[in-house]
């Protein structure tokens, strides 16, 4: 590979040393994985917090990549968090959202968000224990996830076609269809994170831990 420099060749040599070490271990009938238990071969040094070693002569930094400018980061940093970080300037209303929805969303989600053929968005079922159908209204814990997902992935055949305001508007409409916001609601970077979704408090972090006699 032509892009490999002399330094790359050194790294390649060290990989060969590691490979020989591994081969010897296997040949000796040791089926345990020395690497994964936190140890490394003699050609490598252990690193804190990782099962992978680094070659003993590795520099503090290889500097193979390029520093990313603020503009470069901004170009791709499009995720949105529940605290509202990542939401852009702009806004959209339920009324505007109805028009967007009926053009871009209705074919897959139906006029009322219940007809499919793709994911059902609306369900008035109040669930005590488990919902039959998991929808935006009865299952999604955060309204901000709608922005994150719609901006990235919707509409399915033309993702990214909606403007900032149109995304806010269609979210307002979907939330209104689910009776979560009133008909005069306007969604923006302030109001969207403030929406409390009905299923919010139902979500708990995984408590499975493995171990004998434990089924969770």
């Amino acid at each position: 590979m032509s892009q490999w420099s002399n330094r790359g060749a050194d790294v390649a040599k060290l990989s060969v040393v590691s490979l020989v070490a591994v081969t010897l271990m296997v040949a000796c009938g040791d089926t345990s994985e020395t690497f994964s238990s936190g140890q490394v071969t003699s050609a490598e040094i252990a690193m804190p917090g990782t099962a992978f070693g680094l070659p003993a002569n590795a520099p503090d930094r290889f500097d193979f990549g390029a520093e990313a400018s603020e503009q470069r980061v901004a170009m791709w940093d499009i995720d949105v968090r529940p605290d509202g970080v990542g939401l852009p300037e702009g806004n959209g209303s339920v009324q505007e959202g109805r028009e967007i929805y009926n053009v871009h969303c209705v074919a897959c989600h139906g006029l009322t968000g219940t007809e499919g053929p793709n994911d059902r968005l609306v369900d008035s079922e109040q669930w005590e224990n488990v919902p039959t159908t998991r929808t935006v209204g009865n299952y999604w814990p955060y309204a901000t996830t709608l922005y994150d997902y719609i901006r990235k992935a919707m509409p399915q055949l033309t993702p990214g076609i909606l403007t900032v305001d149109e995304v806010y508007a269609v979210i307002a409409y979907v939330l209104w269809m689910n009776e979560i916001v009133p008909e005069d609601a306007v969604m923006d970077a302030e109001t969207l994170p403030a929406v409390v979704m009905p299923a919010r408090d139902k979500f708990v972090i995984d408590d499975r831990v493995g171990g004998a006699g434990i089924v969770r």
């Binding site: 995720d79 949105v80 968090r81 529940p82 005590e128 224990n129 488990v130 919902p131 998991r134 935006v136 299952y139 999604w140 814990p141 955060y142 901000t144 996830t145 994150d148 997902y149 992935a153 299923a199 139902k202 979500f203 708990v204 972090i205 995984d206 408590d207």
Partner: peptide, 21 residues
């Protein structure tokens, strides 16, 4: 970040009213 695939999908409603995430 609570993306769509770690909230509306790939989560486990347990039957006791909670959803494992």
């Amino acid at each position: 970040t609570h993306t769509r695939d770690e909230t509306s999908k790939y989560t486990d409603p347990l039957g006791d009213g909670t959803v494992r995430q």
